[in-house]
Design a protein around this nucleic acid. Structure first.
Lengths: 215, 215, 215, 215
DNA sequence: GATGAATGAGAATTCATTCAT
DNA sequence: GATGAATGAATTCTCATTCAT
C-alpha cells in the first residue's frame, strides 16, 4: 500500500513527538552552521552530524541527504523573504517616500543577515538550472515585482519599471552579499542609507532628501 | 604576469614548444567549457581531459590540479576586467556624461559575457576567504574605486561616494549574472540603458536625459 | 515441535496471552508476504514491521532477528511437506497406480503453492551449508525416499531406485518452482498430469495409460 | 558529445590494451570464485578486489558494480548453455537413441559443472522478475524446446511435448544443482545414466535398454 | 506489551593524483 | 611529450539491533 519506491522524503512524512522534533531542530541548526562555515559543497554530512551531536544513522532518519536538509533551510529563508517583499507601500517623492524605501530595504538587510549563510550557500549550491537557482530567482523576482509596481505608479517615463526594479533589487542583494562575506566591511546603517538614496534617485529622478541625523 | 603564488607550478616555468602550447591551450579551452557547463565543484578533471581529447597524465603535466587550471582562467578574466575598469572618464550632468557611463557599463557587460562562465564559477569556487573570493572582490573594488573617483568629483553631498559606487557596481555585476544564468531573459541593450540611467540619476540626482533612439 | 536449536529464543519460551499471540501471528503473516515479494535478502525488518503495523521494538520482542522469523515459517512448511511425503502408497502398473502417483504429486503441488514463497526464499536464503539448505535437502530427501521405496518394490532392474526417485522428485519440485515464479505459465492440471505420466513411465518402463478425461 | 549520463557501462566501452585485459580477466576470475564461495548477495566488492589483488578503484574502472561483473559471467554461461542446447539430434527408440540422449545430458552436466557457481548465484541473484531470472528461464527454455522438438517427432500421443520436455529439463537442471551444492553426493556417471534412462522412458514409453557396461 | 528514536558498523562508490610504459 | 591503468582516501548511505520511555 505504501509506495515505498521513491527516495526523497523521510522528513515531514512522520509525526514526530517531542524528542524527534528536538533532534530534527538540532540537525537543522547544525546544518545552518556548517553550511555557513564551509559552504554547501564542502559541507559533509559528517560535519553536520557532529555539530548536532547525533549519529550518522539519525541524520538519514530525518533527511534523505545533505540536499534535503538544505532544502528545508532554504525554503524557510525563501518564505521569509518572499513575505517581506510584499510589504512595500506606495512611494512619494518626499522624505516620507524615502523613509518607506529605507524601511523596506532595512528589512531586506535584516533578513539577509538572518538567513545569510543559507542564501550564500544556495548561490553556490548548484549550477544553472538547479532548484536552488530557481528559488533564488523567485525571491529576487518577488522583490523586483513589488518594487516595479511602485515605480510604474510614479512613471516619469525614463525607465523600464521591470528592469529598473530588478537592477535596484540586485544591487541591494549583492551589496548585502559582499558585506556579509566580509570582503568589504561597512556599517550597515550607511549601506541601507546609500541603497535607499540610490533607489529614491532612480525612482524619482531627484536627489534623495538629506538624511535626517539619527534616522 | 601570473606571479605563481605557491609551490604548485609544474608549468609556465618551462618553455613550451609548439606542440605543448597547443595542448595547453586545448586544456584551457576545455576547462572554460566544462566549468561553464557544470560549475567549479561539479567539474571533474576527467571531464576536462575528455573535452580536450587528452589524457589524465597530460593534464598534470600542465597543471598541478583543477584549481590551478581554474586560476589561470580566472587571472585572465580578472586582468581584462581590472584594465577595463580604469577606462571611465570624467562625468558631466548631460547627454555626454550619460554616454560615457553607458559606454563604460556596456564594456563591462561585454567582458562579463566573454568571461561569464569563469566569473560565475569563481563565485561558486570556494567559500569565504578563498583566493577566488579575493579575486572577485578585487575586480569589484577596481570598478568601484574608478566610479567613486568620478562621483567624488561631482559630489552633491548626499552620497558616500565609495559606498554608492560600490552599490552601483554590484548592481551592474549582479544584473549581468542573472542575465547570463538565463534565469531572467532581457535584451542586453535595454539592460545597459537601465543600468546607465540608474547610475546617472544616482550620481547627479537628476533624471537621465531621454535615451536617444538607436543609441 | 520446534526444538529451538540455539541460543536465539526470545519467544516461544514464554506463554503468550491473546494479544501477544495475535501480534506474533501478524508478524509471521507479514513476513511471509514480504519474503514472497522481495526474497529473503532484500526483505528488511522494516518492511515486515510496516506490513504488520507493528514497531521495530515489537519485532525483536518475538524474534531474535530476520532469520529467526524465517526459520519459523520454513519449519512449518517443511513439516507439512515431510508429512505429506509419507503418504505415497504402493504403486501398480495400471490406471490405479497412475492415479496414486497423480494424487501424490497433486498434493505436493498444492503444498508447494501454499508454501511457495517460503520455499523459494529458502532456496535463496543462504549459500551452501546454511541451515536452510539442509531443510530443503531434508524435504527433497523425504520425498525421494518415499518414492524410492515404491520403485524398489517394482524394480525392473534398469534404474537405481534412490537416484531415479531423487531425479523425479527434483523434477516435480523444479517444475513447480518455474510455474510459481511466473516465468513459465501453464495450467496446473496439465503439469500434474505430465509429471505423473513421466514418473509412471520411469517407474514401470511403459507408457502411462491415457488420461481419463476429467480426472 | 559523449552522453555521459548513464551509469552502466564502463566496460566494453573502452579499447583495452593487454594490461587492461589481464586486469579485467583477473577480476572476472576473482568474481567467479567469490560468487561461488559466498553467493551473490553475500559477496562484497571488497572480496572480489582482494581476490584479484586489485584496488577498489580499479574494480570500478571495469565494472559499474557487482551486478555488472556478475552479468558478464552469467552471459558467458548462458551463451555456452544455449549453444549446447541446440546440439540434440533426432531420437530413436533404441540403444542409439539412448546414447544420443546420454551424450546430450552429459554435455549439459559438464557445462553445469563448469559454470555451476554462476548458475547457482543467478538463481539467488535476485527475486522474481530480475534480469537473471529471465536469463535462467531462457536457458531452460532453450533446452526445453530442443527436446520438445524431438519428442514431438516421436509423439506417442500420451504427453504434451512442450510440458514433458520442460519437466525433463528441469529434472536434469535440478539434479545437477543438488549434486553441485554438495547436499547430495553421487557419482556423475550414474546421475547421467539415470537422467538419460528416465528421459528415454518418458519419450518412448518403454524401458531404456540396459546400460552397456563401460559406456 | 508496545513504541520508535537512536545507534554505528559495514558496504558501495567516486575522483584527484601518481607512475610505469 | 603523451598515455591511461592503477591507486586509495574520502564520503555517502543502509539497515539490523538496542534501549529509554
Amino acid at each position: 500500500m505504501a509506495t515505498d519506491q521513491d527516495g526523497e522524503m523521510p522528513t515531514r512524512s512522520r509525526e514526530l513527538n517531542t524528542r524527534g522534533q528536538r533532534t530534527m531542530a538540532r540537525l537543522l541548526d547544525a546544518g545552518a552552521t556548517v553550511f555557513a562555515a564551509r559552504g554547501f559543497h564542502a559541507a559533509r554530512v559528517d560535519d553536520i552530524v557532529q555539530a548536532a551531536e547525533a549519529s550518522h544513522g539519525t541524520f538519514y532518519l530525518y533527511f534523505s541527504n545533505k540536499e534535503d536538509l538544505f532544502r528545508a533551510l532554504a525554503a524557510e529563508a525563501a518564505d521569509d523573504l518572499a513575505r517581506h517583499a510584499q510589504t512595500l507601500g506606495p512611494l512619494t517623492p518626499d522624505e516620507v517616500g524615502l523613509e518607506v524605501i529605507r524601511h523596506w530595504i532595512g528589512g531586506l538587510c535584516d533578513l539577509y543577515r538572518r538567513h545569510g549563510p543559507v542564501i550564500q550557500a544556495w548561490t553556490e549550491a548548484e549550477v544553472s538550472g538547479s532548484e536552488f537557482n530557481r528559488l533564488g530567482a523567485d525571491v529576487v523576482g518577488s522583490y523586483a515585482s513589488a518594487l516595479a509596481t511602485r515605480i510604474a505608479d510614479v512613471d516619469h517615463g525614463n525607465l523600464d519599471p521591470q528592469l529598473a526594479a530588478l537592477a535596484l533589487v540586485t544591487m541591494a542583494e549583492r551589496l548585502n552579499y559582499y558585506e556579509l562575506s566580509g570582503q568589504i566591511g561597512l556599517p550597515e546603517s550607511v549601506a541601507v542609507e546609500t541603497l535607499a538614496a540610490v533607489t529614491f534617485s532612480a525612482v524619482f529622478g531627484i536627489p534623495a532628501p538629506p538624511a535626517v541625523v539619527g534616522a
